[in-house]
């Protein structure tokens, strides 16, 4: 799917995908083109299996680029939240220590979530873990945040907190996310980038 969105005049994009074709053993997505400017929120939108996660992986260096290009601004700092569960296996980490790994801002955590800082990760629900994961990536000192289904397993109140957090950080960061929650994406005012199945 060729979905070209040229940059605005005088704008220096953080990220530029130019006819990107990406995959693992074989191509699974592309060609896809779009740019992402500082402070922008964009959402990859498409059916299951269209390769949205592969696009994020290609940007983050976890998928093979078969054609086209991914151009990152020099010195671009990126965080990437993956949609799969954390590889816990009873690792004795508490919430505060998890956030410290990405140098995330634990002090700015919403008050309702602050009790999670003292608790062991293995004692948290899937939704609570997901929230901490997303927070760790959103508030890390980076320029671009990649979020893969940040609202999975998260209750409506926490979804609202995730949305608030994304809006709060957009002044300093660009966000590229995948979500099947159309209401969530529209509430963020995100630009939609359509990804179609090959």
């Amino acid at each position: 799917m060729h979905d070209a969105v040229p940059p605005l005049p005088g704008e220096h994009p953080l990220l530029a995908l130019d006819r990107l074709v990406a995959g693992y053993d074989r191509p699974v997505v592309g060609p896809l083109s779009f740019h992402l400017a500082p402070g922008e929120i964009a959402a990859l939108w498409g059916p299951n299996g269209s390769g949205k996660t592969t696009v994020l992986n290609a940007i983050g260096g976890g998928a093979h680029i078969f054609g086209g290009s991914v151009t990152r601004r020099p010195g671009l700092r990126v965080s990437h939240q993956h949609q799969s569960a954390l590889p816990l296996q009873d690792v004795p980490l508490c919430g505060r220590e998890l956030l410290a790994l990405t140098c995330a801002d634990a002090r700015a955590l919403p008050d309702t979530m602050k009790p999670l800082l003292r608790r062991m990760l293995s004692e948290l629900s899937g939704g609570q873990l997901q929230f901490l994961q997303v927070w760790a990536c959103l508030t890390a000192p980076v320029d671009l945040v990649l979020l893969d289904e940040p609202t999975n397993n998260v209750d409506p109140a926490s979804i609202a907190l995730v949305g608030d957090a994304i809006r709060r950080v957009r002044a300093e960061r660009a966000v590229l996310l995948i979500s099947h929650d159309r209401d969530f994406v529209e509430a963020l005012g995100a630009r939609i980038v359509t990804v179609e199945r090959q």
């Binding site: 700092r77 965080s79 990437h80 939240q81 993956h82 954390l86 690792v91």
Partner: peptide, 11 residues
């Protein structure tokens, strides 16, 4: 270990 994608994306 905990954020392999974050680690890789950070170069």
């Amino acid at each position: 270990r905990m954020f392999p994608d974050f680690f890789r994306a950070s170069g």
